[in-house]
Design a protein around this nucleic acid. Structure first.
Length: 449
RNA sequence: GGAUAGGUGGCAGAGCGGUUGAAUGCACCGGUCUUGAAAACCGGCGAUCCUUCGCGGGAUCCGUGGGUUCGAAUCCCACCCUAUCCGCCA
């Protein structure tokens, strides 16, 4: 198989990263607590080949020790040559001796770097370890409901789904979007377009004014290193849209603001008093949805392009677990203010994303589907992303330590619009506007056909 | 797209091919002085990996990769990135 230039660069980048950071999981943990790590990964349905790793490690130690011995000898002898020449004495005997080291040293160095790349390939495929509080299970059926909020409304008429509600209003148009772009795109018009904008504004304002987040705007096109930092690459390239650059490189369209916002601290060494960082960011998100051809084809639940208001936090390890609860409550606050019934679940070990140590999903009630659907996902990745990104802070003991990074939707704007249309629809085809949004709609109380 | 300049420790900024992991300043930590603080003075202060129970010892890292050399931050080549100016453009 021919390798694309981007992939080649990625492999080079990974090899380079490995030498600097040695892993995505903590390599020390892997070396010293192998059984524990294996057990933890097993909970995620991930079988860790312990003996394969130990063999590689054994080989690495031998090779590294031998290489370093040779390097030490070469350095010492070369230093002697410098001293002899400085005194104007003859150094040819020493030069002959050091010359003999060259071949073996070069062979050792090459073998070592090849081996390091193999070990990296092994470690890079490992997902984050689940937090101890995460319930064990193989798939979504083992997720655990934490709470239900609100009561689904009783309808005294036949409920329509958001596609029909939007059609009756004449403000939601999939056909024209399909003509322009293809499947999984949407056009909204008039009051509905404004309602969509109002939702995003309302979320931003709430998180800034009431929850203390700093609003940021960021690039929507990012480089491969950023995708690697947050964990989308190298494993999940097929989920992304790529844009080629004239120089042969590529940009990726962000699948979530988590990528650019979290990468703001990549390669940074932060002062302890700079933490926590709390950012809120409204962006479009682009996803290829390559693995979900048959799912949610109707309506605007699953799109190639949607908008999201994202919360990102950079925390110290001591505080990150409290911060996750807090962040999730901030996302919940939006649903509560909009009076949309939802439930909160904690994902089991088998259903979590690659980078996450623990994830809460918020699911909003959709009456037409008679079920709850995901509208937010809030995760603590611990030091997993920070280790990939080299994002550190100087702890009170003066030691450099990896930060913990968290992110969560607060909320997905498109799906929130769906939820409002379905939950606030009325028998005559109109849709009343949630109280909290009316100030953002110039006081408008209802959208009428 | 064209033309320059530059990428060195948390930051700024030195660095004739040879005891340079790197001067100096700032920041930071400890101490002296002070009623306290500031100032001044003294001392300390990079990361990662290997080895050791520990003390310690060793290796690698000056944008990235490669080359020359007994020896490279320093010389050569390629690439990446940043800044500035010109052109074009929302």
């Amino acid at each position: 198989m021919r390798m694309l230039p981007g992939q080649l660069r990625m492999r080079v980048l990974i090899a380079f990263r490995f030498l600097r950071t040695l892993s995505m999981l903590d390599i020390q943990l892997l070396r010293n607590q192998m059984p524990l790590v294996a057990e933890s990964l097993a909970k995620r349905g991930m079988r860790l080949d312990v003996s394969a790793f130990e063999t590689l490690e054994e080989e690495r130690k031998q090779l590294q020790t031998r290489t370093q011995e040779l390097q030490a000898r070469r350095n010492a002898l070369s230093k002697q040559i410098g001293m002899l020449k400085g005194k104007g004495e003859d150094a040819s005997a020493v030069m002959a001796e050091v010359g003999g080291i060259g071949d073996e040293l070069k062979a050792n160095e090459q073998a070592l770097s090849a081996l390091l790349e193999r070990i990296n390939g092994f470690v890079a495929a490992l997902p984050n370890l689940p937090h101890e509080s995460v319930p064990e299970g193989a798939d979504e059926s083992a997720n655990v409901e934490v709470l239900k909020w609100g009561t689904p409304r009783e309808f005294d008429f036949e409920v329509n789904d958001h596609v029909d509600v939007g059609a009756r209003l004449g403000l939601l148009d999939f056909e024209t979007a399909a003509k322009i772009s293809g499947a999984r795109f949407t056009i909204t018009r008039g009051g509905l377009a404004r309602l969509h904008r109002a939702l995003a504004q309302f979320m931003l304002d709430t998180h800034v004014r009431e929850h203390g987040y700093t609003e940021v705007t960021v690039p929507f096109l990012v480089n491969p290193a950023s995708m690697y930092g947050t964990g989308q690459l190298p494993k999940f390239e097929e989920d992304l849209f790529a844009v080629p650059k004239a120089d042969g490189g590529r940009f990726y369209l962000i699948p979530t603001a988590e990528v650019p916002v979290t990468n703001m601290v990549r390669d940074e060494l932060l002062a302890a008093d700079a933490l926590p960082l709390k950012f809120v960011c409204h962006t479009p998100c682009f996803r290829s949805e390559a693995g979900s051809y048959g799912r949610d084809t109707r309506g605007m639940i699953r799109q190639h392009q949607f908008e999201k208001v994202e919360l990102v936090r950079v925390e110290t390890p001591e505080r990150s677990w409290d911060a996750l609860e807090e962040l999730c409550s901030h996302a919940e606050a939006i649903l509560q203010k909009l009076d949309l019934p939802y439930r909160k679940i904690v994902l089991c070990t088998g259903d979590m994303g690659f980078s996450a140590a623990k994830t809460y999903d918020l699911e909003v009630w959709l009456p037409a589907q008679n079920t709850y659907r995901e509208i937010s996902s809030c995760s603590n990745t611990g030091a997993f992303q920070a280790r990939r990104m080299q994002a550190r802070f100087k702890n009170p003991q003066g030691k450099n330590e990896f930060v913990h990074t968290l992110n969560g939707s607060g909320l997905a704007v498109g799906r929130t619009l769906v939820a409002v249309l379905e939950n606030y629809q009325q028998a005559d085809g109109s849709v009343s506007i949630p109280k909290a949004l009316q100030p953002y709609m110039g006081g408008l109380e209802v959208l009428v056909p």
